[in-house]
C-alpha cells in the first residue's frame, strides 16, 4: 500500500495517524505541505527517522523546492521523487490511500 500524506504535521494529524495505521512494509509519500516533514532536524523528522525500518519514505521534490527547502538536508533514508516517480510508486504498490 502507498500512503499519501499531504498536510503539514505542524497543522494536522494526517502523518501521525498514517504512521499509526500503515502496515509495516508500506510506502509513505509526503506531498504538498507534508513535504516540510522531510527536513532533517525538524520535529516530525524524528518520527519519520524512528520508523525508517518499518516503511520506505518518499517526498515529492517539486513540493520541497516550491517551499524553499531544496537547500535543506533531508531525513536520512528518505527518497526524493518527481511526479513521474509518484506515478511509479502507485504502480509498484497495489493500492493507495490518501490521508487528507
Amino acid at each position: 500500500m502507498l500512503h499519501i500524506v499531504n498536510k503539514s504535521p505542524f497543522e494536522r494529524n494526517g502523518l501521525k495517524s498514517c504512521l499509526r495505521l500503515a502496515k509495516p512494509g508500506s510506502a509513505i509519500l509526503l506531498i504538498e505541505d507534508a513535504a516540510v516533514a522531510a527536513v532533517a532536524g525538524s520535529a516530525p523528522a524524528k518520527d519519520i527517522a524512528a520508523r525508517m525500518g518499518d516503511f520506505s519514505f518518499y517526498v515529492l521534490g517539486p513540493d520541497i523546492d516550491a517551499r524553499g527547502l531544496g537547500d535543506k538536508e533531508l531525513v536520512d533514508g528518505i527518497k526524493v521523487v518527481d511526479y513521474g516517480g509518484f506515478v511509479d510508486l502507485t504502480v509498484e504498490q497495489d493500492t493507495c490511500q490518501s490521508w487528507l
Partner: peptide, 19 residues
C-alpha cells in the same frame, strides 16, 4: 488548495508514462 494542481501534474506524468 493545491489538490487540483497535484492531481493535474499526476495525470500529466501518468499519461507521459503511457498509462
Amino acid at each position: 488548495h493545491q489538490a487540483s494542481d497535484s492531481a493535474y501534474r499526476f495525470v500529466l506524468a501518468a499519461l507521459e508514462k503511457g498509462h
